[in-house]
Write a protein that binds this DNA or RNA. Structure first.
Length: 333
DNA sequence: GTCATTTGACCGGG
DNA sequence: CCCGGTCAAATGAC
């Protein structure tokens, strides 16, 4: 089989790695046994993104996001986290700058589905947000909502996010995260800290998974240089237990069913036909996909290392609900 | 009463 | 001047 054209010979390896990921996740499901459903949720996310990546690579269409914001000049978080505009209270009636430069802390854009279908916003991402503004954006069909961490005032958390419904598909939302959460308050999903490893086997698998992802990303970088995307995925997996990125796309502490009940686009609808890839909203380029994958995997690593909270052993659903047996090699026919 | 959301105004970069 | 991001008063929900 010849590798797919479009981006060097790296794609073949990529697909191989992706199929490997799926196998690993499968095994993970077995090893996790009575793990919380969050683990399962994340595993499903990994599956979905994996398939997306494969689809993109196969079709050779790495159409980036409409707005080049994501791939532009991210990262470069030159601190300055401690602004010193304090003196503003009292005498001086003059207001501080209401606008910040776009060179804020690290940004991270993701695309999520609405929860349930009719929702007007993506579901909880594990943090408490307070809406502080909404604007109609030129050229966009839907307004953009601005959120900031609920605990910005009490704990000085500077995390913010922007949520905007996708132009074409109202079920999808573009979420851009700014800054990192410094607040200690998180919901169950995001509060997973690193106690003691309860499932060493699973952790081992996940670490292996992480390695696969890293290799894959490198392959893509080498094969598709010059596309205009900046490989801005500063995720580091050198240590499995070190602070991973907090903002991973999905997480539902209370009602995880919402995601996969119907709103989530599942495997069956993920592989339409390569020919019509133009009208599809796969607005993530491979690097973004890898970013999502790595983020979710890191969350999984955390999840596996936490003790079972509420002996909800019954929640051990099987991943067999989805077609894990789909053959990656079929893409190369 | 407290807290979150709404909404128009304001600010500043491009 | 235009447009995106933020502020803050008004309003609503609990």
């Amino acid at each position: 089989m010849e590798a797919v054209e479009g981006n060097g010979g790296g794609s073949g390896l990529v697909v191989t790695e992706l199929s490997h990921i799926k196998e690993l996740v499968k095994q993970l499901d077995v090893h996790l046994g009575g793990s919380p459903d969050l683990c399962k949720l994340l595993a499903q996310q990994i599956f979905a993104v994996t398939e997306r990546s494969i689809g993109m690579i196969k079709s050779g269409h790495f159409n980036g996001p409409k707005r080049s914001a994501a791939g532009a000049g991210l990262d470069s978080p030159p601190l300055s986290a401690t602004p010193s505009p304090v003196s503003g209270v009292s005498n001086t009636p003059f207001k501080p700058n209401k606008k910040r430069k776009t060179s804020e802390k690290g940004r991270h854009q993701i695309r999520v589905s609405s929860a349930g279908g009719g929702a007007d916003a993506p579901a909880d991402d594990g943090h408490s947000w307070r809406k502080y503004g909404q604007k109609d954006i030129l050229g966009a069909h839907h307004p953009r909502a601005y959120y900031r961490c609920t605990y910005q005032k009490t704990q000085g958390c500077s995390a913010t996010k922007q949520v905007q419904r996708a132009d074409e598909d109202p079920a999808l939302f573009d979420v851009i995260y700014h800054g990192e959460h410094t607040c200690a308050h998180k919901t169950a999903a995001a509060a997973m800290v690193q106690p003691a490893g309860q499932n060493p086997d699973a952790q081992s698998l996940l670490q292996s998974l992480s390695s696969s992802l890293t290799v894959k990303t490198e392959g893509l970088t080498a094969g598709t240089q010059g596309q205009g995307w900046s490989t801005t995925t500063p995720f580091s997996f050198s240590s499995p237990a070190v602070t991973p990125p907090e903002h991973y796309p999905f997480s539902t502490p209370s009602t995880p069913e919402n995601y996969f009940g119907q709103g989530m686009s599942m495997p069956t609808s993920l592989e339409p036909s390569p020919a019509t890839s133009g009208s599809n909203h796969m607005c993530m380029n491979p690097f973004q996909a890898q970013s999502e994958l790595q983020t979710m995997v890191s969350a999984l690593v955390e999840a596996t290392s936490m003790p079972v909270p509420d002996t909800t052993e019954e929640t051990a659903v099987s991943l067999d609900d989805f077609d894990w047996n789909f053959d990656v090699n079929s893409f190369f026919v």
